[in-house]
């Protein structure tokens, strides 16, 4: 009798895949989480020694951006179904496809979800939240999760229907267009935020003069910098951070260094809250 996956199996795999990173560990990263996700599929297709073999197969090293795991689960489901019905697919082939796709898909998933979708929805939410509006958290939660759940659900379907053809999609230009477009949007908004959502004030007085009308005009370092380009100091700081992050200095170390700079400059009167 031919073994066939039911929509019930896909539903439970979808639910379980929301917990993919629960057992993220330093040795095999998302391996256990991936196995946890595909258990409904494996249980439908195999029993006895075949099931043991299948479980072991999906406990191998695995790590990618968590949401783009969905199409990989779909492909795995299609391959496992064929294998369970007697097709000659070796264990190594299934793992090869998983490992082969996790890199390129993370390359798509990281800029789209972590680089663009989350910063933009979170920034939008935060802009409401800072005035105390409950709309802020709600907007962020609903928008982000709607996109995420859609990707998880249709990703599994899509991977299952297209099977290994999807490998061409990853290499093809549609995903590349999406990634590049998202990166442009992300970088544009980050550029704006570097300017809008930072504040540096250097109140060191350069000159105090009384003009023709008898008004006292105080020129500070900050007012000169603002005439040049508002937000220049945060811009330089951003590039300094990029430099140090690339040199493998951890984010926390940089954060503490910036705190030290803040305390020292405040103590010496070089910097102030606007």
């Amino acid at each position: 009798m031919e073994k066939k996956l039911t929509s019930n199996d896909f539903f439970w795999t979808f639910i379980r895949s929301n917990f993919a990173q629960g057992s993220w560990n330093m040795e095999r990263m998302q391996a256990l989480g991936y196995c946890f996700g595909v258990i409904p599929i494996l249980k439908r297709l195999y029993e006895g020694d075949d099931l043991k073999q299948a479980l072991k197969r999906h406990l191998e090293f695995y790590n990618t951006q968590p949401f783009v795991t969905a199409p990989i689960i779909g492909i795995t489901a299609a391959l496992e179904e064929k294998k369970a019905n007697g097709a000659d697919i070796e264990d190594g082939v299934i793992n090869g496809i998983k490992v082969g796709m996790m890199g390129p898909l993370a390359g798509v998933g990281d800029p789209i979800f972590w680089g663009t979708l989350r910063p933009i929805t979170a920034a939008l939410g935060a802009s409401f939240a800072m005035s105390g509006s409950i709309l802020g958290p709600i907007i962020f939660f609903v928008l982000f999760n709607a996109v995420r759940l859609w990707v998880r659900w249709y990703g599994i379907k899509y991977g299952y229907e297209k099977g290994t053809d999807i490998v061409q999609d990853v290499a093809g230009n549609r995903l590349q267009k999406l990634t590049e477009g998202a990166s442009i949007l992300g970088l544009f908004v980050i550029g704006a935020l570097v300017n809008k959502w930072t504040s540096v004030n250097i109140p060191v007085v350069i000159s105090t003069i009384t003009n023709a009308k008898g008004e006292v005009v105080v020129t500070t370092v900050q007012s000169v910098l603002d005439q040049l380009l508002p937000g220049l100091v945060p811009l330089i700081m951003t590039f300094a951070c990029m430099y140090f992050l690339k040199r493998k200095v951890s984010a926390i170390t940089i954060i503490f260094a910036l705190f030290a700079i803040g305390i020292i400059c405040y103590g010496l009167g070089i910097m102030n809250v606007k």
């Binding site: 992050l245 910036l258 803040g262």
Partner: peptide, 9 residues
């Protein structure tokens, strides 16, 4: 003061 620019990280 640092809170104003810590975001850049």
């Amino acid at each position: 003061v640092a809170g104003g620019f810590i975001v850049v990280v």
